[in-house]
Nucleic acid binder design. Structure first.
Lengths: 198, 198
DNA sequence: CTTAGATCGAACCGATCGGTACGATCCCTG
DNA sequence: CAGGGATCGTACCGATCGGTTCGATCTAAG
């Protein structure tokens, strides 16, 4: 889908349009799976414009990953907020949201994790680390509100479930991955917040 | 570490040596992070030899991933076998083995999952899918021996924990990731094999 | 209407890529 | 000792890569 033309020449708007159009292409093809020339042709923009706004292919990639991380965590945060006050329901909402993501035909796993597997670039790894930290904050908050004895540890366990479910969903498209992950997460939540058995 | 020279000229041995020497280099640098020329220089073999044995860079990559998947699952299978008959101990042994992997300085996540994130090549994706199936068989077996009501579902949940722990360990090197994953896995195991609460 | 900046399209650059070819060397086999 | 296959080192190939440059075109602002 080419960048909209004919609209007002507004550099900020052009930059945003390039970002939005390039995101699914690089996600589908892989960061090194498409050259700048073909990418520009696909999104309907000249190389000069792309380089003026992002300086470098890596610069574009980093901008895409930053935006995607914020959009994704914002999306999950809204799902949690819409689930009411019960930590159980909030956690279930996270995996229900993930399920909708996994079902999309274009789903190819977490873009940040994929990018870190491709480039060993420090900037990309930093973006991925921040992304996981955002997830961790969200999950640790749920764990804390549930009264877990060690919310940080439970949060990390839930983070592993989220990332693991994403990996499995990207490679085994058949079964109800998010539903199984949700069941596991709720089991961990209730086990961590229940009073110690005698 | 260059391929050992001076030894008997044995094509099968040369092939195995190339495979072994190239594995850590491609794992560290990424599949597209090093060219064939530099790779050959690093492992001390000529391009002609490499291409005669593997035909293509992709052929080498696939051979490496096949061998690595078998070695890795064999390693975990042995750890399980050495842990005795109790499913609880067998599952704990899996994560203890993972812990030793995560602690290695060269650890960079699962090579098969990383490769699938880089190439969208169907052959590579098939190898990764088989790799996850091997893990799943191992974990489902433990779940079945523990008397889980649905060993397949529990096995998939444990698989998500394994893969998620690997992702988290690759990006957050500080904390005791495998230990936390182990605790979560044992919680899921006991919850799934315990008689239903009244 | 004029002007300055944003964009386009295409040519162009040096570097690197995966893969091939070839003569020289080495080692095992007969 | 003679021959054949495995290996080496190097040169080479066409293609593609990320990135730059430039004149033409367009648009918004003065």
């Amino acid at each position: 889908m080419p960048v909209a033309k004919g609209s007002t020449i507004d550099p900020a708007r052009t930059r945003a349009a390039v970002l939005e159009a390039a995101t699914p292409v690089l996600y589908e093809r892989g960061l090194d799976g498409i050259g700048v020339a073909e990418l520009c042709a696909r999104i309907g923009v000249s190389k000069e414009t792309l380089y003026r706004h992002f300086g470098t292919k890596d610069g574009l990639v980093q901008a895409i990953l930053e935006a995607r991380s914020e959009r994704l965590t914002g999306w999950l945060t809204e799902a949690v907020a819409a689930a009411g006050d019960a930590p159980h329901d909030q956690l279930a909402a996270v995996f229900d949201a993930l399920q909708r993501w996994y079902e999309r035909p274009a789903f190819r796993g977490c873009a940040m994790v994929n990018a870190s597997a491709q480039h060993h670039d420090d900037a990309v790894r930093a973006i991925t680390a921040r992304h996981l930290d955002r997830y961790l904050d969200l999950l640790t908050g749920i764990a804390a509100r549930a009264g877990a004895a060690d919310p940080g540890a439970l949060g990390r366990q839930l983070l592993m479930l989220v990332e693991g479910a994403t990996i499995v969903a990207a490679h085994h498209r058949t079964a109800d991955t998010a539903g199984q992950a949700r069941h596991a997460a709720l089991t961990l939540l209730s086990a961590a917040s229940a009073p110690d058995p005698p």
